[in-house]
Each structure stands twice: as structure tokens, then as C-alpha cells.
């Protein structure tokens, strides 16, 4: 099932081309939207919300035409904006119920859903308190609640962990992950923090200068390196490196770990045997895989 499908979409603002003949389609589920500043991510999000009239191209999102069905799109898509957007003097329930009414729900329905959704977001204790008294983490979760109150099929989150302390970040990411993996709602997660994207998303798309640079499943994009391992031992890493070299491996020191390349066809058991022989304690041994950061940077280079 496709989440959205854009074909040759172009949008310019005066001299600046925000989207440059962009063609991309992504499946439903948890999708990460990555790209350097100025890549056109914000414009892309606005296009997906049907807020922009594009110059050229066509596209659908959840089956709706982005050129014609703008209002219907916003009935099935929720948006969690990056910046503060809460007005004072409202309680949590009122705020979320208002968001529901703005989406077209009746007053009763909106109020009922508001309570349910606030429970889900973990704000049930605070729901009757004014929103000004909320901490940053609570405010973010409140925005998320306001975005899902009308039960959209897709929720777009723009830098949702911005400014959150570690606990707040964890709560937010857990919610995003739960929504996309267990509750059947798709999530489009736009963020600069790659570990956050990795925690929540299965697919990513990388944009640059208005174009699509790369897309795919995260675990497929992270290349496996054959016969290359990262190793850390408790003490005397240098000595261990020499032992490994004598056993036929190539080693390379990075930060506080060793990168070990075993001879072709040989697995990690060589490293274990060397450790057993020289009495070293291996604390970390994993095959080398590129990080999402490396995937991202590589995509940008191309």
C-alpha cells in the first residue's frame, strides 16, 4: 500500500526552487524524512498536506490527489508542527477538543476523543490544567494528541523531539513508534537527529536541493561489510591488536575501539581464539555496519 506517490513535482518561490522535479513514492508505515537545511523538506511536508499549489507534476497521498482534494487530505492527515503553537488560557482537554472541532468533529465527539487521546499520550493527570503550566515534553505530547484526535491515517511530525530532555525524548519516540508499529497509523518523521529516526522508522527518504537523493529500508541501506568487525577489549588493546595481526588480520584503531579485518572467509571465531590464547577480555564484538549517518552523508555526496 502506498502512502504517497509524487511524480515530477516542481515548486518555485520566486528565484528559489524548493522542489525540483521530485518523484518519490513511499509505502505505509513509519517513514523518515531526512535532508540538510534548505533541501525542501518543509515544502515537501506542505505539499503532502495539500497546503501548496504546485507548479508542475502530480501526486497522490493516501489515494487523494494533492491538487484537488486538499481539504479531504487534511481530514485524514494530522500534523505536529515544530514550533510552539499553544494559546494560553486553555486546559489540555479544551485544546485537543478544539483541534478536533477544527477538523470537523462535533462538540461531543471531539470532547470524548480528546479524553481518550490524552490518556493515550500519557497526559491524563494534567488534562484539566492550563496548557501554560505544561513542561516542554508535555506540550509536545499535547501537540501530538491534537494531531491524532480525528484519527488520521497519517501523522506528520516535524522535529518532534526538539528541545526535549532525555526523558521527554524517550516518551515522544515511544509514542511515535507505537502509533506506527502497533496502532496502524503511518508516521512521517522529519528530523535531523538520525538516532531518533532510526528508533522510529523502517523506511527513509533523503532529500537534497529539492530532489530525492536516496530512499529505502534502513536495514537494507546500511551496508554490511564482509569480514570487518569492531572490537573492544578491556585492557591492553594495542597488544591485542598485535596478536591479531600475527594471526593474519589487519587492524585499525578508531577512537577507543579496534576495527579488525579478518582474512577472507574467516569469521569472528579467529578473534575469539586469539583472545582466549592471550587471556584478553572482549567486551564488544560486532560486525561493522554503516551508521545511518554514513548512509545519509553518502547519499548527499552522490
Amino acid at each position: 500500500m502506498t502512502l504517497f506517490d509524487l511524480k515530477n513535482v516542481t515548486k518555485t518561490y520566486g528565484k528559489v526552487t524548493a522542489l525540483n522535479d521530485l518523484s518519490v513514492d513511499m509505502p505505509i508505515g513509519a517513514v523518515g524524512l531526512l535532508g540538510p537545511n534548505g533541501a525542501g523538506k518543509t515544502t515537501m511536508i506542505r505539499t503532502l498536506l495539500g497546503l501548496i499549489r504546485i507548479d508542475k507534476g502530480t501526486g497522490t497521498i493516501l489515494g487523494f490527489d494533492i491538487r484537488k482534494d486538499a481539504l479531504k487530505i487534511r481530514q485524514t492527515v494530522g500534523f505536529v508542527p515544530e514550533d510552539e503553537c499553544l494559546f494560553p488560557g486553555t486546559t489540555g482537554v479544551e485544546f485537543v477538543a478544539y483541534a478536533g472541532e477544527l477538523a470537523g468533529m462535533g462538540r461531543q465527539d471531539a470532547m470524548q476523543r480528546s479524553h481518550e487521546v490524552l490518556d493515550y499520550a500519557g497526559l491524563s493527570e494534567q488534562r484539566y490544567r492550563p496548557v501554560d503550566s505544561y513542561s516542554t515534553g508535555m506540550k509536545q505530547r499535547l501537540k501530538l494528541a491534537a494531531a491524532i484526535v480525528h484519527d488520521p491515517k497519517l501523522v506528520i511530525m516535524d522535529e518532534p523531539t526538539n528541545g526535549l530532555d532525555p526523558q521527554g525524548r524517550e516518551e515522544m519516540l515511544e509514542l511515535a513508534r507505537d502509533l506506527s508499529h502497533n496502532k496502524g497509523m503511518s508516521v512521517l518523521f522529519s528530523s535531523h537527529l538520525l538516532p531518533d529516526v532510526e528508533h522510529v522508522c523502517d523506511h527513509i527518504m533523503v532529500m537534497g536541493r529539492g530532489k530525492l537523493l536516496a530512499k529505502g529500508r534502513i536495514d537494507e541501506m546500511k551496508a554490511r561489510f564482509e569480514s570487518v568487525y569492531q572490537v573492544r577489549v578491556k585492557r591492553e588493546q594495542e597488544a591485542f591488536a598485535h596478536e591479531l595481526q600475527r594471526a593474519g588480520c589487519r587492524t585499525n584503531s578508531e577512537d577507543d575501539a579496534l576495527e579488525v579485518v579478518t582474512p577472507d572467509g574467516v569469521g569472528p571465531d579467529l578473534i575469539w581464539r586469539t583472545a582466549a590464547q592471550s587471556g584478553k577480555q572482549i567486551r564488544y564484538l560486532r560486525p561493522r555496519r554503516s551508521t545511518l549517518e554514513e548512509v545519509f552523508l553518502k547519499a548527499l555526496e552522490d
Binding site: 510552539e84 503553537c85 494559546f87 477544527l102
Partner: peptide
Amino acid sequence: RFNAMPLYFSKPLR
């Protein structure tokens, strides 16, 4: 002042 515009205009209304 409170930047509530994204809140309004991301909903289905003109």
C-alpha cells in the same frame, strides 16, 4: 503571537 496559524491551517479549513 502564539504562532497558532499552523494549528489552524493544517486542519481542513480555508
